[in-house]
Design a protein around this nucleic acid. Structure first.
Lengths: 242, 242
DNA sequence: ACAAAAGTGTTCATTATACACCCATGT
DNA sequence: ACATGGGTGTATAATGAACACTTTTGT
């Protein structure tokens, strides 16, 4: 096992979308003392200290692989958190001592956010302490993770308005209504359906397939894919949802 | 003297504007060997390792105070640089050994950018190894500072389009032509004068004074100030220069 | 009088917004 | 047949882009 860097960690916000609300993946943190009392019962972000020789990106990919089983996840660094009291709540201190972690008194954490296709992610035995929560309805959080999440969501929204990264949260094939609901969920607004579709359909990198939804109890919707290739070639047309 | 954190530093991009081009403040780095040969002659960003007990922001403000003599500078963290070979060029190794710095093999640097009113900053004796360079015409740079600058400029531009931070680069009182030149210099475009002024003059937080330029050999321009107070109150109207 | 930058309005094109009805499918 | 979401067009308002001449000052 490689040596850790005691004073630098990464924390990863993993976002997922259930076609209704934006969710974030959290890990359960639980500690029960000798008397069977729950000392700690809350959630934290997926995170870990850097290992010697790793870049921050390396560590973030490693953390994401451990919690999701995916590599090649969309990943973006957004902020380095450096408050001196980041880990100094009583519960966090107990937790750190309990795990016998050889970490520094002052730990700097580099925040990342990542986007996954929630429908592909199977939270099996191996990852069973991970749970999805809608971002408007988060459980109690350890460390400074509430603050990290707040800042991360803000950065996600900024990025969302500037570049078409939403497709990372959808299955490869999606309908325009799903796309619209995604933008509404992330940006916390609503759009008129006709106007939204007009805007989207003039983007050449969102390509209609010769294919329809199956087995829905209403008129089946046309299915689209996102072409990163076309996007890179026609970048001028900006997708701005303000 | 306080103990340093050997593996974490901050590097600060200090931007200034001379009413023509955007400039960045760099520190000369020079090393001459016993034979009088220049071993190293290049420039670096203002930067320093964190001291124990400091946040990254603390360290950045300290570095800025040391190079500019100002506190209360506009400051923004933009990225944490973590490549394992950041300081491993031959010159950088020589430099580190020469200064006898007690720093780690792998140093993580948190990048900040800051905006100052260049006309107020006096590069006196104390700061005489600092020099301004136009961003399109930078000298040879040490460490990975070329990369840090590139990313920092990109982040500055993004921020510039979203919030009215440009005033930090101007004197308190400015003309609309100065403001226009600033936007053109930072964003690398040009604007039609009439359209630019129309756009600006509908922003309530850019306030005309009952005052004109003095001593210019042409029609003197009206003088404006930026009101952060009014801006915060009327934030909806976004200043978007795309 | 001349050089230099300040100041100013209109037209046209593009983009954003508001809004209502019929359609295809599963049950 | 009914419930559900899919699909579509037009009119109006707001915004952005292009463009040229007169004014005020210092020298």
């Amino acid at each position: 096992m490689k040596e850790i860097i005691p004073n630098i960690s990464v924390d990863c916000l993993v976002f997922g979308f259930d076609f209704d609300r934006l969710h974030i993946l959290l890990k359960k943190r639980e500690l029960i003392n000798e008397n069977g009392e729950k000392i700690i019962s809350d959630y934290t972000l997926a995170g870990n200290h850097l290992l010697k020789g790793e870049t921050a990106d390396d560590a973030a990919y490693r953390v994401l692989y451990n919690i999701t089983g995916f590599d090649n996840i969309y990943l973006e660094q957004f902020f380095c958190f450096s408050k001196t009291n980041r880990l100094k709540n009583e519960k966090d201190q107990i937790w750190v001592r309990h795990l016998n972690l050889d970490i520094a008194d002052h730990v700097f954490s580099i925040g990342y956010f990542s986007l996954v296709d929630k429908s592909k992610l199977v939270l099996d035995e191996e990852h069973k302490n991970a749970e999805w929560f809608p971002i408007e309805d988060l459980p109690p959080l350890g460390f400074d993770h509430a603050e990290i999440i707040e800042k991360g969501i803000e950065c996600l929204r900024k990025k969302f308005k500037q570049e078409p990264i939403g497709f990372e949260l959808l299955p490869e094939k999606f309908t325009l209504t799903q796309l619209q609901k995604l933008y509404e969920a992330v940006l916390g607004t609503t759009y008129d359906r006709r106007n939204f579709r007009k805007k989207i359909m003039q983007l050449k990198y969102i390509i209609p397939l010769d294919e329809k939804q199956q087995g829905v109890p209403h008129k089946p919707a046309q299915v689209f894919i996102f072409s990163r290739e076309v996007y890179e070639k026609t970048k001028k047309e900006k997708l701005v949802f303000a």
